[in-house]
Amino acid sequence: MLTPAESEALRVSLVVATESVVLSLPLAVGAAWLLVRARFTGRTLLDAVVHLPLVLPPVVVGYLLLVVFGIRGPLGAWLHDSFGIRLAFTTGGAALATAVMSFPLMVRAIRLSLEGVNPGLEEAARTLGAGALDRFVTITLPLMAPGILAGAVTAFAAGLGEFGAVITFASNIPGETRTLPLALYTAIQSPDGNLAAGRLATLSIGLGLAGLVGAEWLARRLRARLGH
């Protein structure tokens, strides 16, 4: 049904989106917690930095990643020299660029769910003998689950379609960083790529629809469990 190039692009897209979600989920939970529960100077700045990718052109994000994580960038050189990890022009790099771009969406969903958690329930857990980490894992996190799921699904769906930051930081290497949108872009660029472009666009739409329906179904089940 799919050509080898198409299934390769689909595979790269799924890998990149999955890795980006895995990478950003713990950080997004941490950032949401800091923004909702912690009181510290610089909270407004953190809020702004988290949301920056939403308002920046994706090319700028890709460029900044190249500057910092490129082979000669401060973090990129350190990662390469110490651990032999190269991010620029690799699948991992595409996942990093995707993670940064979808981070604000994820934080936003998780933050909303955390704001909905009644701190009184954490107090109740406290009087029952639960310490800080215990309370977070057994009370706060399960009550945030619908928001975490929504954030992860949104970020995954957005990650499937990330274009500008990926092509800037990770380039357009078949089987490595050529995701569905990049393959679509390549097809449009070639004179006889109309049919291929149509097929890839259809594939993207199908994937998006499946994701949305699946997410809604999961969210309903979770909400039913929480009695909403």
Partner: peptide, 20 residues
């Protein structure tokens, strides 16, 4: 002592049962 070590049972006005 922190609240979690005081071993004081607390029944709140709004019960505060864990919904999950």
């Amino acid at each position: 002592w922190p609240a979690e070590r005081r071993r004081i049972g607390y029944v709140f006005q709004d019960a505060r049962l864990f919904p999950h």
